[in-house]
Design a protein around this nucleic acid. Structure first.
Lengths: 221, 221
DNA sequence: CGTGTATTTGAACCGCCTCAATCCCTGTGG
DNA sequence: CCACAGGGATTGAGGCGGTTCAAATACACG
């Protein structure tokens, strides 16, 4: 009786070719796929549920709103990233899509457990995905606890470029706004903007439009 | 042929009564237990290995040293917390004990996989522990991305008090130094000290010695 | 008791936040 | 095709908080 039950379409194998790129193939039998629009909520904060999710394409943010009204982003979710309810079936954080055309796969908890119990390869897959989540969070922890704002932004941009879907390109399109970057790094939007400008004039990155950034030869060499 | 292999004693069931309190009972058959002294390394940074670990008692820090020489702590590990090598068998971060008398259980990766494959309850246990790790890291992410330094410190202290082994006490002994707190929160030692002083004079906490802190009625009420 | 470490306190500087305004990019309607 | 609107991004000025450097004090351990 979860409120997200109804929102997922009845066609479990929508877009299977896209799904296979980033979602675990072993989980395909129990997956339902849903496209989400920009700013649309995937998991409501403090809601109950036991589903797990995987981003197929696009991007999503996992966050909470502090008592003072500040939005704190704890994770930027990109294709291949897992997220979901904790062991207590309670969602401490909300998740919503950042871009239009974001697609997420949903795996009902009961079915996921059943599959994991019957197939060790599935259990293994889940462990690996959770390990990756841990590694990702620790990496983002490093970004946030970095000293200077410009260094935070530089590290964040390089992290994003490194996670570019196509892999080895040295130019990528940022799916998120300056506000997202600010809320993730715990600094103000203005500082993000200033830092990006500084990095550009220092020749570390180059911009082709606000959202399209590249690593310059200076940074690579 | 991991270098930590030799350092672990030959007695797999050392201190079983302590282990049962925080380590998963299902993993006891393959566990080896080791006491670690203060500042002693449990996992070397950039080393190879596939073991997993669980803190039985004491405390440990998971960290990296930045190119500029700054120590960045990504996780404070307390009794019951899991840690280990990622899916790539590579240790991105070092782990070392914070206090004397820290005890960790070690689970060799091969045996852990075998056990998980043969017993779904073990696989389930591992998933839950990893989920807890994710939740813990996200919680710490919130601390670090908090705005003011005093608020970071307050949240950190309350987090530590909340994780007090004995549970419901409102006074606890901090196992780590001000430097650990500083490196975890990404602020300077002096600021940590000043913040603690401020919180004390504001009546939020009370100190009985530098490492023994309590929540005052003011903060509870 | 003395020694080294941990913690606290002080003073000055600088970086980041805040508030405010401008600019730019996108989409929409005339 | 242009005008306009609205959100996103950038830039500017001023104040405060946190870092840094320096020193004093408290603490733990032999």
């Amino acid at each position: 009786m979860h409120q997200d039950q109804a929102r997922f379409g009845p066609s479990p194998k929508l877009l299977p070719h896209i799904q296979s790129a980033f979602a675990p193939a072993a989980l395909q039998p129990i997956a339902t796929v849903r496209p989400v629009r920009r700013e649309q909520t995937i998991i409501e904060q403090n809601s109950e549920g036991d589903s797990w999710f995987c981003v197929i394409s696009g991007a999503a943010r996992q966050f909470t709103i502090s008592p003072e009204g500040r939005r704190q982003i704890v994770d930027i979710l990109l294709p291949g990233d897992f997220f979901g309810y904790g062991p207590d079936k309670h969602a401490r954080f909300a998740v919503q899509a950042i871009t239009d055309g974001t697609i997420v796969a949903r795996y009902p908890g009961m079915q996921l457990d059943a599959l994991a119990n019957s197939d060790p390869r599935v259990a293994r897959e889940l462990r690996d995905r959770l390990s990756s989540t841990v590694a990702r969070l620790q990496e983002q922890m490093l970004l946030v606890s970095t000293m200077t704002a410009t260094e935070k932004v530089r590290a964040f941009l390089f992290y994003m470029i490194g996670r570019h879907p196509s892999g080895e390109e040295d130019t990528t399109y940022l799916p998120m706004s300056r506000y997202d970057i600010a809320d993730q790094l715990g600094i103000s939007v203005e500082t993000v903007s200033r830092s990006i400008t500084d990095l550009q004039s220092a020749g570390v990155i180059e911009l082709a439009g606000p959202r399209t950034i590249g690593i310059t030869g200076k940074a690579r060499g």
